[in-house]
């Protein structure tokens, strides 16, 4: 039985991750008027659009609906904007994989991390607005860290798996937008939970649904979500992220042949 040994130099991951994130951020600003601001503009645009359609036209009424809407829309747009970009992160950088030996999961992780900055900036702006209008509970604000980390891990994990699938099959590129649209309407972002009682069970099994509830609880209702829900959610996100890392280890030797 022959043994196999890989030669060469594994590239240090930290410096490469920083460089890939920096490259992603720079590319966002190339040949663009809005440049790196686009990921911030998008949720604001959707907010205005949904506010008009669902609040003014379809008369969806909740206490402080704009805050209710934006608190749910913000984590969702991060997920929905990031996944299509991350989906192609490996296939689009196939040349890098053919050239150097490095941790290939850094490509989707860099893609998600770069767009995380915009999410955090928008989130900070939202918090400032809430503070300015006096509807912010400073006591529960630190708890926001848990759903933010959970959301980052969830999106990164999904992105890692999608990017891997895209190497083998490109159908997801056509399907993803439709799947995200379906997912969006399964989560009470623009409508109220009690308007779609048939979808209530999803509140307990859909991770995006759970995270939207947590963001909304802290930012819109100024209330602390159940701690066990937040902690178990975070633990699950860490677990699936570890599973994604493990999966990539299994593909270390296959990806350079497949891309």
């Amino acid at each position: 039985m022959s043994t196999t040994t890989r030669a060469g130099t594994w590239i240090p991951s930290r410096d490469l991750l920083i460089t890939l994130v920096e490259r992603k951020l720079r590319l966002l600003s190339k040949r663009s008027w809005f440049g790196a601001a686009w990921p911030i503009v998008a949720p604001l645009f959707l907010f205005v659009l949904y506010l008009f359609v669902f609040h003014r036209v379809l008369k969806v009424h909740a206490t402080n609906y704009p805050t209710y809407l934006f608190a749910g829309l913000l984590p969702w747009t991060f997920l929905a904007q990031t996944l299509p970009d991350t989906l192609i992160s490996i296939s689009a950088d196939a040349e890098l994989i053919r050239r150097s030996a490095f941790r290939y999961e850094l490509l989707p992780i860099a893609s998600v991390t770069a767009l995380s900055f915009h999410f955090l900036i928008t989130m900070a702006g939202f918090v400032i607005v809430l503070a300015a209008v006096g509807t912010l509970n400073y006591a529960v604000l630190p708890a926001l860290v848990i759903p933010i980390v959970s959301l980052y891990l969830l999106v990164t994990t999904l992105g890692m798996f999608l990017a891997l699938i895209d190497v083998y099959n490109r159908d997801l590129r056509r399907l993803l937008a439709n799947l995200l649209t379906i997912w969006f309407f399964l989560i009470p972002i623009v409508y109220l939970q009690n308007q779609a009682k048939v979808l209530v069970p999803l509140r307990y099994i859909d991770p995006a649904n759970i995270l939207v509830s947590e963001f909304r609880s802290i930012l819109a209702y100024q209330d602390l979500p159940p701690v066990h829900t937040m902690v178990s959610g975070l633990a699950i996100c860490i677990g699936i992220f570890a599973l994604a890392l493990f999966t990539y280890r299994r593909f270390d030797d296959r990806l350079p042949r497949e891309v």
Partner: peptide, 23 residues
């Protein structure tokens, strides 16, 4: 040799740091 491809069989050993201009 650059470590991009792991041998399907056999051994490839490099002692030191590799720099490559392959593509």
């Amino acid at each position: 040799l650059a470590g991009v491809l792991e041998p399907s069989r056999g051994e490839c050993r490099i002692d030191g740091r590799v720099s490559s201009l392959i593509d």
